[in-house]
């Protein structure tokens, strides 16, 4: 049975979607201003997926993420200050400045890391799910990955093992239609990644990844099954990347058309959900506006915090290569 979201769920999901959207827009602006070193892969357009799935998870449930991982961490309970500090390469960041955007993580909320290796996450999620079962907890592990990663051997091995051992695991394919710069039709012969599920012996479900309510319901069912010992599910969320693979450019890209972008932007998951919330009388426009005001204020504070934080001292370079005592 599909689990209907409560008003509290709806408001929490909205807050998370706004937090992700504004975080990413702010990070993109900072990168363009040269304040964030390295590469940024932004999640704008895909917010409904992280928000809808994470609404079912506690800090004790784990996720693995991708190179496009900020949204996953925000929705899992990541805080703006240490996230921005990490993106800025400062010592106060979640990883002490050693990881950056592509490796931002927080074990305390069960976020096992953004990952620079496409397909890096699913096998680790299987390990976490195995551990959950082995330790007899009721926790689940969720692997987020893209259509591109669904072509990595690591994904296939992970999916097979999760089904074989009936692990409390959920595979969430964020199918945004592009593996880096290559359109899906040029990187796989299937249209629906969920079709592959039957080959592993697990259910495959397709959902509109621009609709947070739909994601919430489908993820809820799959996570319930996982918690009840009924094994993994492959949940494919059809979505779109409003920005380029790296950076903030959306229009004028050579490998996709502006018309295609416009079609997806017309289905913007954040504004669509806000319209829904008003129609359902869950929130008023004023309440929505105050969510933005709060989030924006928190972001301003976080950026100030990051900018004022020191860079890590080179003396820490060899710390944490190995465990040598402590936590």
């Amino acid at each position: 049975m599909a689990k209907r979201p409560t008003k509290k769920n709806l408001k929490a999901m909205h807050l998370n979607m706004v937090r992700i959207r504004r975080f990413e827009e702010t990070a993109g602006r900072m990168a363009e201003n040269g304040k964030i070193p390295g590469a940024l892969h932004l999640y704008v357009g895909e917010e409904a997926i992280a928000a809808g799935v994470m609404q079912h998870l506690s800090d004790e449930d784990q996720i693995t993420s991708t190179h496009r991982g900020h949204g996953h961490l925000v929705a899992k309970g990541g805080e703006f200050k240490p996230m921005f500090a990490e993106l800025f390469g400062r010592s106060t960041g979640y990883c002490g400045g050693k990881g950056g955007s592509m490796h931002v993580s927080n074990m305390k909320v069960g976020m096992l890391g953004a990952n620079g290796i496409v397909g890096g996450g699913p096998p680790i999620a299987v390990g976490a799910a195995f551990s959950n079962k082995y330790r007899k907890t009721k926790n689940v592990a969720v692997a987020f990955f893209g259509d591109g990663a669904s072509n990595e051997g690591s994904f296939h091995e992970a999916a097979n093992m999760a089904a074989l051992y009936k692990l409390p695991c959920l595979f969430v394919c964020e199918n945004n239609g592009y593996g880096e710069y290559t359109p899906q039709a040029n990187h796989q012969a299937v249209v629906d990644v969920a079709d592959r599920a039957s080959g592993y012996g697990m259910p495959g479900v397709i959902v509109d990844g621009m609709d947070v309510m739909a994601v919430y319901e489908a993820a809820g069912e799959a996570i319930d099954r996982a918690r009840n010992g009924e094994g993994p599910t492959l949940l494919e969320c059809k979505t779109y990347r409003f920005y380029d693979h790296v950076g903030v450019r959306g229009m004028g890209l050579t490998y996709r058309t502006d018309e295609e972008l416009a079609l997806w932007q017309a289905r913007d998951p954040v504004s669509a959900f806000e319209k829904n919330l008003i129609d359902l009388k869950v929130m008023t426009q004023d309440e929505i506006d105050s969510v933005y005001a709060e989030v924006n204020a928190a972001l301003d504070e976080a950026v100030d915090f990051a900018e004022q934080s020191p860079y890590p001292d080179p003396s820490v370079l060899l710390d944490d290569v190995y465990w040598v005592g402590g936590d």
């Binding site: 390469g89 400045g97 050693k98 860079y311 890590p312 080179p314 290569v321």
Partner: peptide
């Protein structure tokens, strides 16, 4: 390079 993975932060990568 020192015996560590390549660090992200410019202050560390420059030293690395």
């Amino acid at each position: 390079a020192p015996f560590s993975p390549v660090p992200f932060s410019p202050s560390l990568e420059d030293a690395y």
